[in-house]
Design a binder for these strands. Structure first.
Length: 683
DNA sequence: ATTCGGACGGCC
DNA sequence: GCCGTCCGAATT
């Protein structure tokens, strides 16, 4: 600190004697120093380093040229981390290119220091970061912070393992053979081709085996594979499957919760080309896999794939960007098909890979007991609990042969009430919003319009009785345990997620997304209180509900039975009964097209102080056909949100307009706003 | 004449 | 963002 403040008195030459000339300023003291000292030795070959400096400012988000001192000629390689003097401070940056000359008019400041000669930012990833930043109207610096993990010097000193020979191609297509287009996809990968597919993975299927085989086929052609999953639990499972299919040491798992040292060591093994098959959570989408042959994403509807930090890129989009740029193969796989995946199929970019209907029917039977079941129930347990007779019987029968999964919505998930006779959600007569009871003795109140409703009666059946439908996994477990003495009950929810259960009979109560895998599949699966999930006031409720039910139901063993408790007329439950993820996604895609929502349109939101949002809006040079909605108060602080929608043909222009408006604001020292392109939720 | 501070422009 | 420069106002 004292040193910095002394620069003016001419101590800089003493600090960096051989660089004094390049670091010249107009001050007389330094001018004297310049003539007194020998010229700095600059690298003979490619003396210019183009550097991406880690500055958060939108208008400075471009490479800056620096002189390469001769001492750094060999270490300041493209991809290396460096320290540079920028705006009077020492900042981190990456060399992206070495050049013979610079377009910069003025004198080039020398690089201050090469932090490490390890080329951690490969040209492909630098290019990817630029494309992702452009798509999401953000800065390259922000993307690089997501793409390159923090350095760990000790991990860097250790060598990475030697690269291995490609494994042999799979002997046969294994589980892929059952799928229409499955064997052809696998064979194309093994040939080193670049097939692109959307795969609706069927029920009672080990998806990790499918993905591991795709990796092996790709690796057998001598190419790299990159596969992203939503969370650590999926990663552990996939890790095991890859070890089984590829053998040990041929792949690596990248995830933030490895800790800094292991994480960086794994990253380096990838960057150095020691390992060519990479699996990981969302940050791994940027992994510098050599000679990329396949990118794949599992369960792309899971919102964990949406990065919460600016510029909020989505794993699927990052991977597809890589597939576009490198021309490699791509696989979007899940039990559910997202609207975005449906769009890839619709445009012909990807081919669908599906399980023939006949095989689906052999593997699973999904039933939604009609409302009549509830009325006819004589079984006191079935009436008192939320489990109609058919579900209770399925549970009982399942328990004679193995574990039964009971999915129940999370407590407090949608704290609305339901009619205790017909189970319809209690709705406000004025606005149809969900009703809730703030306290045990307080009157009902609408969550949307806040109207009090002391004399409610059910619009459907006229019933006056209410139940608090959110029983929660704990009470569900207690109820079921009492009804089945001697059967072990296990709960998996929230903090205490159970990864797997064995084949012995047990009641496994889980909240959505926390379902343990059963080693031999569940004998049966019950989905309780499905209307609660559907009652969530969210735009993507239907898709998200179906995805969670398909994921839970898929855990049955072949020939297993699934009972979903809810309104059998509801289109989402019908899609579940028919096991039709593709049809549901196509219908949703059509609806989104009509309402000009992504993926058929490009949507962006601007959030911030009203003045800042208005300021950015004024600077926007929007492409023709852009709709401007709002601004509308968000309810948080004093912030407002502006929504922009452009036809897909103008998607790039919309992002570009946003970026340049933000840059213009930033250059004028005015506050920028939060920009989200195609946000997962509008909230 | 000298010092202080706030605004502004540039950042290689 | 931060630093350096410039210029006007306050201070000796």
């Amino acid at each position: 600190m004292t040193r910095e403040s002394e620069t003016e008195s001419g101590e800089q030459p003493a600090l960096l004697p051989d660089l004094a000339r390049a670091a010249v300023r107009t001050s007389r003291a330094q001018a004297t120093a310049r003539t007194a000292r020998p010229a700095p030795a600059v690298a003979e070959d490619h003396p210019v380093a183009r550097v991406l400096v880690d500055v958060p400012l939108a208008h400075l988000d471009r490479p800056f040229d620096y002189a390469v001192p001769a001492t750094m000629a060999q270490t300041a390689v493209p991809g290396a981390r460096v320290k540079v003097r920028f705006a009077g401070q020492d900042l981190d940056g990456f060399v992206v290119e070495r050049a013979e000359r610079s377009d910069h008019e003025g004198r080039l400041t020398p690089l201050r220091r090469v932090v490490s000669a390890e080329p951690v930012l490969t040209p492909e990833v630098a290019e990817l970061a630029a494309r992702v930043a452009a798509r999401y109207a953000g800065t390259v610096s922000d993307v690089l912070r997501l793409a390159v993990p923090p350095r760990h010097a000790t991990a860097e000193k250790r060598p990475s393992p030697d690269p291995q020979q490609p494994p042999p191609a799979p002997d046969d297509a294994g589980p892929w053979a059952a799928y229409e287009g499955g064997s052809a996809f696998l064979a194309a990968l093994a040939r080193g081709d670049a097939p692109r597919a959307v795969c609706d993975v069927g029920p009672a299927e080990d998806w990790t085996a499918l993905l591991a085989l795709a990796c092996r086929a790709t690796a057998s052609a001598g190419r790299g594979a990159l596969l992203c999953v939503p969370d650590a639990r999926d990663l552990t499972r996939l890790d095991r499957a890859l070890t089984a299919v590829l053998g040990p040491g041929r792949h690596v798992a990248l995830s933030a919760d490895l800790g800094p040292s292991k994480r960086y060591a794994a990253f380096l093994a990838v960057a150095r080309g020691s390992v060519r098959v990479v699996i990981g959570t969302r940050a791994a989408a940027f992994a510098p896999v050599r000679d990329l042959g396949l990118v794949a994403v599992w369960d792309d509807g899971d919102d964990l794939h949406a990065e919460p930090r600016a510029p909020y890129p989505h794993t699927r989009e990052v991977l597809l960007e890589r597939a576009h740029a490198s021309g490699c193969a791509a696989l979007v796989a899940g039990h559910a098909r997202t609207v975005e995946a449906a769009y890839l199929v619709r445009t012909g970019w990807a081919r669908p890979i599906v399980l023939p209907r006949a095989i689906v029917r052999e593997r699973i039977r999904v039933t939604v007991p009609g409302a009549a079941d509830h009325d006819l129930d004589r079984d006191a347990f079935a009436r008192a609990s939320r489990v109609p007779r058919l579900a209770a019987e399925t549970l009982r029968r399942g328990l004679t042969t193995g574990p039964v999964l009971v999915q129940t919505p999370r407590q407090g998930y949608a704290a609305s009430l339901a009619c205790d006779r017909c189970l319809a959600p209690a709705r406000c007569p004025a606005c149809a919003g969900p009703l809730r009871q703030p306290g045990p003795l307080s009157p009902l109140r609408c969550r949307w319009c806040a109207r009090e409703e002391p004399h409610w009666s059910c619009a459907g059946c006229g019933g006056r009785g209410l139940r608090a439908p959110v029983v929660g996994e704990r009470r569900t477990a207690e109820e079921l345990g009492r009804a089945h003495p001697g059967v072990p009950v296990r709960t998996s929810a929230g903090e205490t997620v159970v990864a797997a259960v064995g084949p012995e009979p047990a009641i496994v109560v889980a909240t959505p997304g926390a379902e343990p895998v059963a080693s031999q599949g569940y004998a049966a699966v019950l989905l309780l209180d499905t209307w609660l999930m559907l009652a969530r006031p969210d735009l993507r409720t239907d898709e998200e509900s179906l995805r969670r039910w398909l994921n839970a139901a898929a855990l049955v063993r072949p020939g297993g039975h699934v009972v979903a408790v809810g309104d059998s007329a509801h289109p989402v439950l019908q899609a579940l009964v028919r096991w039709d993820p593709a049809g549901a996604a196509e219908r949703e895609l059509a609806a989104r097209q009509e309402t000009h929502l992504p993926p058929a349109s490009r949507l962006a939101t601007l959030t911030g102080e009203p003045g800042a949002v208005a300021g950015v809006q004024e600077l926007l040079d929007l492409p023709t056909g852009t709709e401007v909605l709002g601004p509308v108060p968000t309810g948080d602080d004093d912030e407002v949100r502006l929504v922009l929608r452009a036809p897909r043909t103008h998607a790039a222009a919309l992002s570009a307009a946003l970026r340049s408006a933000q840059a213009a604001r930033s250059a004028r020292k005015l506050p920028v706003v939060r920009v989200q392109v195609d946000p997962v939720a509008l909230g």
